[in-house]
Computed example of a mutant assay.
Amino acid sequence: MAFALHRLPLRLVSGAFILNSGYSKLGLDEEGAKGLQQMAVNAIPQLEQLSPEEFGKYLAAGEMALGTALLTPIVPTKLAGLGLTAFASALVWVYLRTPGMTESDGVRPSQQGTAMAKDIFLLGIGLALLLDKKKR
């Protein structure tokens, strides 16, 4: 069974958050997409090959697909957890690689990086879903 009541809070909060984030990026203008892309390029240089418009569209579509998968009970928990873990890992990597987001130790968030540091919670949720054991 892909759905269990004890997983509902994890899938609901992360799925709704990510789906809303993707939906809000649907109307992203070129300047906004370019800013997000520049941050992402710090961690994944290959993303520079995309135009800002393409990057914004792909990001919005990816977030909406992941959010929908997390909210859909028929999607297996391990698959949803794997998707969330991969996505959140990329977000945390962007946070760690973007100048000015961390204090001098390279881990603790600076004032500017506090908003991005919350992605560690998404990583924790993804890992919890991925490592959850099925009841027999």
Rank of each mutant, 00 (worst) to 15 (best):
V92E: 11
A4P: 00
I44W: 09
A88H: 04
Y58N: 12
L79F: 10
K135V: 06
L84M: 07
K78N: 08
A33P: 00
G35F: 11
K134H: 07
Q111A: 15
A4N: 06
K34P: 00
F3I: 04
Q112Y: 12
Q49L: 03
L131I: 14
G56E: 01
A60T: 05
R136L: 11
N42A: 10
E48Y: 06
D132H: 09
L127S: 12
G56C: 04
K57M: 05
Q112N: 11
P52Y: 01
Y23R: 08
A86V: 14
L50F: 15
K57S: 04
L131K: 13
L79Y: 10
Q46H: 09
Q38K: 15
L91Y: 04
Q49T: 02
I18F: 02
S110E: 14
Y95K: 04
Q37H: 13
S51N: 12
E63K: 03
L26W: 14
E48K: 15
V94E: 01
K25A: 02
A80P: 05
A115I: 07
L28Y: 00
M39S: 14
P76I: 08
I125V: 14
D105Q: 11
S14P: 06
A43H: 03
D29M: 09
E31F: 10
A117P: 00
S21H: 10
Y23W: 13
F121Y: 14
T68H: 03
I120T: 09
G22D: 01
Y23M: 05
L96R: 13
E54Q: 13
G56T: 02
L91E: 03
L59G: 00
A80R: 01
P45A: 04
E54C: 03
A65R: 03
L71R: 07
A61T: 04
R11A: 04
R97E: 06
E48G: 12
S51H: 12
A90T: 12
A128C: 08
T72V: 07
R108F: 06
I18M: 02
E54D: 08
A128W: 08
L66N: 03
G83T: 05
R11P: 01
K135H: 01
A2Y: 09
G56Y: 00
D29K: 07
G22I: 00
Q46W: 11
A60S: 15
G27Y: 09
P76V: 10
K34M: 08
V92H: 04
M64W: 04
F17M: 04
A16S: 15
G106K: 12
D119E: 05
H6M: 00
